[in-house]
């Protein structure tokens, strides 16, 4: 069975890897520490696709998710990469 690319599914929002140098600025804007962000599992199918693109993503990196939102057009959310729940 060929591997399924979940990113192509209409219901999966766009995931980006946040460049390490941008992290500080984003955290400042959010007024939050890294451990206060929601988490994303390294085993998440969406993250697997990103790893294919960027190479290994270490835990502690940030992922940006752009969602189409009924109220705000596009809304940005951030996730902290963690290894296990």
């Amino acid at each position: 069975m060929g591997s399924l690319n979940v990113m192509k599914h209409a219901l999966v929002p766009v995931h980006h890897l946040v460049p390490e140098e941008d992290e500080e600025e984003i955290l400042e804007k959010l007024d939050a520490r890294k451990d206060q962000l929601p988490k994303i599992l390294k085993a998440d199918p969406a993250l697997k696709q990103l790893i294919e693109k960027h190479g290994d993503i270490k835990k502690g990196r940030l992922i940006q998710i752009d969602r189409i939102s009924k109220t705000a057009g596009i809304s940005k959310a951030y996730r902290l990469v963690v290894e296990r729940e």
Binding site: L30, A32, D35, Q36, L37, P38, T71, S75, Y78
Partner: peptide, 30 residues
């Protein structure tokens, strides 16, 4: 006051309330 929704541990639950930060009571039909 930055419109983020957080729990008592200050963990972010939603980055912006309702994604647009609008208070529905003060909105005009949403």
């Amino acid at each position: 006051d930055d419109a983020s929704v957080r729990n008592p541990a200050d963990t972010i639950i939603q980055f912006k309330y309702g994604e647009d930060g609008v208070d529905p009571m003060r909105s005009i039909k949403g």
